[in-house]
Nucleic acid binder design. Structure first.
Length: 484
RNA sequence: GGCGCUAUCGUCUAGGGGUUAGGACGGAAGAUUCUCAAUCUUCAAACCCGGGUUCGAUUCCCGGUAGCGCUACCA
């Protein structure tokens, strides 16, 4: 049975790199009819916060992918200690009574003692037992077998065969002096107990994997399959961090801006993975079918946002925006309208579902993010007397003057009360009016568009008027006339 | 410092001993439309450097360089 896990540590919000790791695990599980395990790696009591746990669940729920089993590492400490003890009893670990480093004293690079604290590794068992019994605190360290084994190796599905000399692996800690397991121990103990078959995680763990292989072997278990993912990095190549890059790395930022989760997932999948057939826009089902570990590549991927964002959109990778627009256009009017309504309501516009449904087709091809509805459809949402102010000069058509604008709007004001507010009759009436006036159709439409929308760039005129209705249209033309 | 991983257009990527090095986003130009958007067409844009191996390397090998990761009683 194939089992994968996503194991975030709740020390901050769910960030995009973690989200991608979750997604790849999920895809692999679904592709191979396996089980997806969610495990909170919360052994670092100092740094864990409830807010972080909430943020992680919030982000994962938004992705709407789900998982099959859920665990909390802090509830499994007995298991961790049991496995640590088993390793100790086999002589594969030793007690280190050296006081823990306080503060981040400089790791004196060149010194030779980085592998372990001299003396402790070879401390006779009897003395070790005596000191422990006397209540001295100690960390439990793995005794890396430098005499009996010269290398540690494993196969990585992405990076291939990996080999490292034991001389280059330090005696890492299994248990802290307060008895809490370290990440390495807890992670491996749980992976064994939960029968995880494939560990898919960030490449920052590639070098740690040698230690994990040692723990698996020390505990008498077969190491699972490994697949490390290239990291997601900032445009300057640096690691994504909250401190340096702010909210752009948080999943909730994407949600709040109006990304569709399916588009966000699609975007993240394209960073460090490729279906290799030139497809870019993929549905969830297509991703499941196309996903494979072989499609993952080895170089870090840049999320291409602008460091100081000049516009709100620059917070996001242009490709993410494009993909979101693609997914928005792929939605039916019913579905898109249902997604847009809460956004509009949240902004304080109490419009009906029917109104939203009527507006949706007019803006579907004009928005990249759900929040864009507020700017793209503002003139549908605002009251007639609350349109954003515009320069009266905007009312003047191309190659025309104020007199032409006046003429056009006056004529429209005369003709519209008797026109049925449907696309075709409006089209007919206004085109005829332009001919009678001797102006081009565009010269007729543009002043009306500005009068009604408050700006030059807007959806097609007749559909707009139809949705807006006769009353608002006439009121807004009157207002425009007042400006001329 | 030590150990390791990586290197194709600005970005995401395909490819692979002989190719016009392909696609996408973004950019530019044009078509179309009542404006905008969408759509369509076209254009500019890349194999990190140096040695090998080879008839021939962007591709294979070695070295360099650069970036990143690990080097915690963080994860």
């Amino acid at each position: 049975m194939l089992r994968v896990r996503f194991a975030p540590s709740p020390t901050g919000f769910l960030h995009v790199g973690s989200a991608r790791t979750f997604i790849f695990n999920w895809l692999y599980a679904r592709r191979n009819r396996g089980t997806m395990v969610l495990r909170l790696d919360d052994t670092d009591v100092e740094r864990n916060t409830d807010a972080s746990v909430n943020s992680i669940f919030e982000g994962l729920r938004w992705l709407d992918l789900g998982w099959d089993e859920e665990y909390k590492q802090s509830e499994r400490l007995a298991l961790h200690r049991h496995i640590a003890d088993a390793i100790f009893q086999k002589g594969l670990a030793y007690r280190d009574f050296t006081p823990a480093h306080t503060g981040d004293t400089e790791k004196s690079g060149a010194n030779q003692t980085w592998l372990f604290n001299p003396g402790m590794r070879e401390l006779p068992r009897a003395e070790s037992d005596r000191r422990a019994a006397a209540g001295e605190t100690f960390a439990l360290r793995f005794r890396v077998p430098r005499d009996t084994a010269e290398t540690v190796s494993f196969h990585d599905a992405v990076y291939g065969d990996q080999l490292k000399s034991t001389a280059d692996i330090e005696d890492f800690a299994l248990l802290r002096s307060d008895g809490m397991p370290t990440y390495h121990l807890a992670s491996c103990a749980d992976d064994i107990d939960l029968r995880i078959s494939h560990i898919i995680r960030g490449q920052d763990h590639l070098s740690n994997t040698y230690k994990h292989v040692l723990i698996f072997q020390g505990a008498g278990a077969h190491p699972p399959q490994f697949a490390h993912l290239p990291l997601l990095v900032a445009p300057d190549g640096s690691k994504l961090s909250k401190r340096r890059h702010g909210p752009v790395v948080s999943v909730t930022t994407y949600r709040d801006a109006g990304f569709l989760p399916e588009a966000f997932i699609n975007f993240l999948c394209l960073l460090g993975w490729s279906p290799k057939d030139n497809r870019e826009n993929l549905t969830r089902q297509e991703l499941i079918e196309a996903f494979s570990l072989e499609g993952i590549n080895r170089a870090n991927a840049v999320i291409n946002f602008k460091e100081p964002a000049a516009t709100p959109d620059e917070t996001f990778d242009p490709k993410a925006l494009w993909l979101n627009a693609e997914h928005i256009r792929a939605l039916t009017v019913d579905h898109l309208s249902a997604r847009l309504l809460p956004v509009v309501h949240a902004a304080g516009f109490p419009i009906t579902a029917d109104k939203m449904h009527a507006i949706t087709p007019l803006i579907r091809e004009r928005i990249k993010l759900l929040r864009d509805v507020l700017t793209a459809a503002d003139f549908f949402l605002l009251a007639d007397n609350q349109l954003p102010p515009y320069d009266p000069a905007e009312l003047i058509p191309q190659k025309g003057d104020a007199a032409m604008a006046l003429k056009v709007l006056t004529r429209a004001r005369e003709v519209l009360p008797h026109t049925e507010f449907k696309h075709d009759p409006l089209d007919q009436t206004l085109r005829n009016a332009s001919q009678e006036l001797g102006v081009k159709a565009g010269q007729m439409f543009q002043p009306i568009r500005v009068a009604v929308c408050g700006r030059k760039n807007a959806p097609p005129l007749f559909e707009t008027l139809e949705v807006l209705g006769r009353e608002s249209t006439l009121a807004r033309i009157d207002q425009a006339l007042g400006k001329l």
